[in-house]
Structure formats: C-alpha cells, structure tokens
Amino acid sequence: MLGSRYLVKNFGASGYTLQKSGNFPYWDNPAFQESGDFNPDIVLIMLGTNDTKPYNWTGTEKFLKDYKELISHYCSLDSKPQIFLMTPAAIFPESFKPANHYKMQTNVADTLSSAIKELGEQKQLPVIDVHEYTRIHPEYFLLDGVHPDSHGAELIAQLACEAIQQNR
C-alpha cells in the first residue's frame, strides 16, 4: 500500500501484553529486540488487547507507565523513528461466544483506547484510532470476536497507510 520506497516488517507477537507485569510481556519476546535491531524509520505500536484480560489488567497508570517506557525505547534508537500509536481493535465478546474464552474486557479496551489517545496528545505523537473504526465492523471479527479477518486486517493496514502518508 505504501509503495516500493518502504520496507515493511511485522514485529508483532500474538498473545503478548504491553505491560511488563502481564502474563506474556512483549518486552520478553524476541520480536521486541528484533524491532529495534531493524533500525526503523517508522514505528507503529499496536498493543493492549491482551492487557484487557482480568489477570493482566493492573490499571491505566501502570499501563501508561510501561507504554511511555516503550515509546522512550524507540525514541532512543539511532534511526530516530517517527512513532505512531495505535489503539487496539474493538473486541466483541458479547456477540461472539468463542471470544468469551479470551476473557478480554470491552470496558477496559475502551479505557485503554482513550488513554492511548490522550498519551498521543501529551507526547505529540500521531494516533491511529483502530478501536473507533473497528467498533462499527463486528463482521470483520466473525472468527472469534477478537482477531480480525482479512477484511479487518486490510482496514487496519489502510488506516496505518493513510496516517503514514499524512504525517510524512
């Protein structure tokens, strides 16, 4: 979508949390180290969905503390990348029974999304509000109410593409 001038790499880690106290902290995943070693010009941070699980959620203050530390980590890279914050996608555990076993809390996802938008304002970083855009598209999450299908993934990629093009 961005064209041949961009080399896009995915350093996501399914099931991982932003919070260091979570059951699977992204900080401990090899993808975290690899993302910095890549020396990116642009970093998209989209974490938080797994933080909404009751056994991971320790509150907004703790979440934002770790989020700010993650931002600082990427700001300290030699490449001085442009950083984009992304809210987590909406989740639909009430509508899709398979999502219930993930134990994700929609009210916490709403809280996280608002906190990430406020953090973006504070840090003067662009925020891609995936949560708001996906909230009206439960049909993109029919598999399990949590993970987007190919149409949902394309929507998220399009939002990221547009944000990058507007902020370069």
Rank of each mutant, 00 (worst) to 15 (best):
D37Q: 10
N100F: 05
Y133L: 15
L77Q: 06
T52P: 06
F63V: 09
H101Q: 15
Q122V: 13
N56R: 07
Y102W: 06
Y140D: 04
E69H: 05
S95F: 12
D129I: 08
D37G: 14
Y67D: 10
V130K: 02
H101T: 14
K80A: 15
G36C: 07
H101M: 10
Y26M: 08
A109L: 07
V127S: 02
Y67V: 00
Q33L: 10
I83V: 04
P88T: 13
N39D: 12
R135H: 12
L47V: 05
I83E: 03
R135D: 07
Y74N: 06
F141P: 05
W57M: 08
P30K: 02
K103P: 02
I45W: 04
T87I: 10
L70M: 14
K62F: 02
N56H: 10
K68V: 00
P81E: 03
L44K: 12
S114G: 08
N23P: 00
T52G: 12
K80H: 15
F24M: 14
A31K: 05
I45M: 02
F141T: 05
I45P: 05
Y67C: 04
T134Q: 01
D129A: 09
H131P: 01
E139D: 13
A99W: 02
K103I: 07
A90G: 13
F96L: 06
E132Y: 09
I45C: 02
V43L: 03
F63C: 10
P25N: 06
A115I: 13
Y55H: 12
K80V: 14
M46L: 14
K123C: 04
K68C: 06
I83F: 07
N23L: 12
K97E: 11
P81T: 03
G59L: 03
H131S: 04
G48I: 09
F96W: 00
A31R: 11
P93V: 05
E69Q: 15
K117Q: 09
P93R: 10
D51G: 05
D41C: 00
